[in-house]
Design a binder for these strands. Structure first.
Lengths: 215, 215, 215, 215
DNA sequence: TATGAATGAGCCTTCATTCAT
DNA sequence: TATGAATGAAGGCTCATTCAT
């Protein structure tokens, strides 16, 4: 699936659309899709309310574009880091990937999109499909690949790579969403992000290590 | 815990409040707090719009009550099942608990509340606090206790019980929310709920099993 | 014009209608016709909301009845006092009448009706007509008679009795409405009711006294 | 007045608040604060309902502004006329002032505000204070000054200037409110405004004239 | 006769969207 | 391209009125 680049977004030299998208992401994240007001987005973007309609046909489409655009730009920013190095062991590949992904996830923009995705995406099936194709499936494929390689190399026990990738995703996303807000973290006695990562990594690697004599 | 029933609502041994709560849960789940219309809730409950205001002072308070009431009644329904049997091994206790919890989580009403909780709870700090105290903390304490006992008995390796409970929660909740809708499950090739449970359980128990010679 | 005595008000031994009328007068006075709620009137009367409808067909008619009934009962209460004694001088008759009227006016129930009359009566032409016939015209006729007699007897200069009655009414009603609320009185430095009366009386009698050699 | 939608949009933005205030005064006067509907005000102003909220935060504040604005603009319009000429006798000053005030009072806008003031002001203490300071006190001070000067010059008998100013106000306001509506005037046999003024003036001057030998 | 739960029309207010400038 | 005043449909909430008990 290709990202739909409408005429508005093709006007590269202009910064207007990006200003609006940034402002919209912030306001959508703070207020949710319904409570976010175009007035606030415009004020935050430093433009007039009507200007938004020069670039986006309506609020829902602006929301779609915010999610699409943020996902894409975030993925682009992360692309280099998330590439596995073929020489590493599968364990190291997985650790490296998880580490990068943890960093990626904890970015405010990423978390914002995740929150929106969870809360609003069921109302936008086409956007859900896009998210699935562009984000979920590649990530799962990538992680599945690392795990499959680890199984082949005897580093991991024989698990279902796809199911494992799903479980790792659940672990990391759940922690990023819940425990990276200081007040939530404090109330359940959660540790700093680095410690959370260590705990998740430790849990995952133990879950995957071969049984005695399995290698 | 006793649900606070003020004088206005204590009035009748009537089904009205429950009808309204049920309808509201359904509509809130489908539409979210903002898009849910009192008209729809009323129609679904088979009452007039004004009737809602005989029992709940406004839409937000109705939402609060839906979450509170559903959580409480769901917890009560689950209370018996979730009790651990002291004679079992920690592994069996954990499996039993996870199984019951998985059943509990996948209930439509529970999932609905979870979706609402994730999407809207940050706007209701007092409700978030209630949820934390009534749901999250007891569950974490219970699971932590099982894990600590397992460590003592040598069934589990030395992990941080609280961190592990958190991680298990992330795994289960994530899977319940994402893969129990048929279309989502299909699109990522996820299996039936029973298989999902087996996979999660397998993952968790392997993550906790002692290293060679650790026991 | 005869006071319409509908079936409800004819049920003499029952106190319900009177309780409701009293409560309604109080709430109408405090809130005005539109802001007064039947709920409050019912609570104040110690009856259920529906009970009001057993005696009055609707809120407007209740209002009408409050005004009619209060005027009538107030007038009946004042009737004896307001009768002129034929032996007195016109000056004494006028003073006596003004004194009684000042007492009558300053009664909370009378003031309440006056406030309602000024604020709402233009919406109830039939009620305005009733008020005119039952209250204004008799009072004017009575005062005009005293003044005419005073002119004949040489106690007053030759004024238009009707115009004078009007002016006296304006003076007394204006002062009763504005300066009998403590906070209003204080803010304009008005005196106690007795002093106000003395000032009004003094003003009126000087306005009416014959010029030198006029008698 | 209905304008085609296009030309309505094109009107100078400066006129909007005034159009709305004028329409609001008319509707508030006809219906009272509670029965006045924003829809009617908007239609009368030739704007959409939402436009009102561009200039006034809500209905109550619109009401406040109507009273404030109308009082202020009416006072400004009357300011020049109401200035006393120092060369005149106190009697002429008072007559001149009463005449101007009578003209001022009988203006529809002034009467409308007076009706609103009497009927609704007790619900708006801050507005009542404003009215007292801006309208009542200056007027009373001005009239008191004329009367005090008249007493010094021997034109008036020794009265309490403040009490007299109050009484004059009651006379004039009462007559303006009650007898300037044709139907009310007719029903009590009141004369034309000019005659009413002559009668009030005559009454007042006689009330103030010195007794024999007092000068 | 008395109750008070239930009704639903009515209205204020919000805010996404339009359009004249 | 940019503006922001103007629009008007939508929806939460109130409360007079009804009616089953």
């Amino acid at each position: 699936m290709t990202l739909p680049l409408d005429s508005a977004r093709r006007r590269a030299p202009d910064e207007r659309p990006q200003q609006i998208l940034d402002a919209a992401l912030a306001v959508f994240d703070e207020e949710g899709l319904d409570r976010a007001r175009l007035d606030d987005i415009a004020r935050r973007a430093g433009v007039a309310k009507g200007t938004i309609y020069l670039y986006f046909p309506n609020k829902e489409e602006l929301f779609r574009e915010v999610v699409r655009h943020t996902i894409v730009s975030r993925l682009e920013a992360a692309r280099g880091k998330l590439a596995a190095e073929p020489d590493l062991s599968a364990v190291d590949q997985l650790c490296s990937y998880m580490h990068d992904w943890w960093e990626f996830l904890r970015t405010p923009a990423t978390l914002a999109v995740y929150r929106l995705v969870i809360g609003e995406l069921h109302r936008f099936p086409e956007l859900a499909a896009f998210y699935l194709e562009e984000v979920v499936k590649p990530a799962r494929a990538f992680v599945s690949g690392i795990i499959a390689r680890g199984i082949e190399r005897g580093e991991f026990r024989r698990v279902d790579p796809a199911a494992t990738a799903r479980t790792l995703a659940a672990m990391f996303v759940g922690h990023a969403l819940w425990y990276c807000k200081p007040e939530m973290a404090r109330s359940v006695g959660a540790e700093a992000p680095e410690q959370l990562f260590q705990q998740l990594c430790d849990f995952a690697l133990h879950a995957l290590r071969p049984a005695v004599g399995e290698a």
